[in-house]
Simulated assay, not measured.
Amino acid sequence: MNSINHVAIIMDGNGRWGLKNYNSRNKGHKAGLKTVESIIKVSIKYKIKFLTLYAFSTENWKRPKSEINYLFKLLENFLELKIKKFHKNNIKLKILGEKMFSKKLNNLLINSEKLTKKNSKLQINLALNYGSRKEIVNATKKLNSRKLEINEKNISKNLYTSNIPDPDILIRTGKTNRLSNFLLWQISYTEIFFSNKLWPDFNEKDFIKIIKNFQKIKRNFGEI
């Protein structure tokens, strides 16, 4: 049976769910937070140590400003309400990406990371203003500036995910079968599961089913 150390998720379909059910993309983003909380509970139950959530990509800046502002306000409220609970439950928060937001949100992110940095039950990596191609380019630039050899080991050490194991599982919801510039370096041998459900409809049973299917897979990593 395969052990699971790290699960990464592309949480796709919030906007479409909101339009379908309430004629409002923002309603979908809000509903998606409930799914996040459910997935965190299952991750703890199955003793998964790392959960990486794709929350906002470098390409998402192309969305309407009103939607972007709502997303960030939603995140601010979530952190203000939940970060102390995360800390109490021994959950660590780490941000993957460049913090280029409002002063308030930047401070919330920084303080949340500081508060929870020693926690060890579950590490939630929140990919914000994240793009995998940019991440790889930035890592290469760091190596050049330090005059270090460009090899796989050194690149991995200089990614946002330094000291984080590569994902065992990548899940994408929303009936869209693509990677969308997410963890392209890290998922070389990750098992990928696509779900037709929109993110707010994805539930604990769906997640557990994927976990159990993964545990049965024969993983060869290039061998026979």
Rank of each mutant, 00 (worst) to 15 (best):
T52P: 05
L115E: 01
S38F: 02
N90P: 05
E204P: 03
K205M: 12
N220A: 10
R25F: 00
E80C: 02
F194H: 15
K73E: 13
T140K: 13
E204C: 08
Q186P: 08
L105I: 02
F56G: 13
S120P: 00
T58E: 05
G97N: 04
T190Q: 11
E135W: 01
K141I: 09
N151A: 09
E223D: 10
I110A: 03
V42A: 07
I187A: 06
L179D: 04
E98N: 13
S132R: 00
I44K: 15
L93P: 00
S43H: 05
W17N: 07
K49L: 10
E113Y: 02
S112I: 02
N138S: 13
L53C: 11
F56W: 12
K212W: 05
N60G: 11
I210A: 04
L93R: 01
N111H: 07
T52S: 15
L81G: 00
G97A: 07
E76Q: 08
G174A: 14
T173L: 15
D201C: 04
L109H: 02
L93C: 01
L51Q: 02
E59G: 12
H29D: 02
I124R: 04
N181L: 10
E76A: 06
I95R: 03
I164M: 15
A139I: 04
Y46S: 03
S180Q: 15
N177K: 15
N144R: 04
E80L: 07
N90F: 03
N14I: 09
N77S: 15
A127L: 03
S112T: 02
K134R: 06
I211P: 07
T173F: 15
L93E: 00
L148T: 05
A8I: 02
I124H: 02
I169E: 04
K114W: 00
N129R: 03
T161N: 08
N21F: 01
E80D: 03
N106C: 12
N163G: 15
D201L: 11
T190V: 06
K20N: 11
I91D: 01
S162K: 15
G18L: 00
S120E: 04
K84T: 04
F221C: 10
S24I: 00
T161R: 12
E152S: 09
W17S: 09
G222L: 08
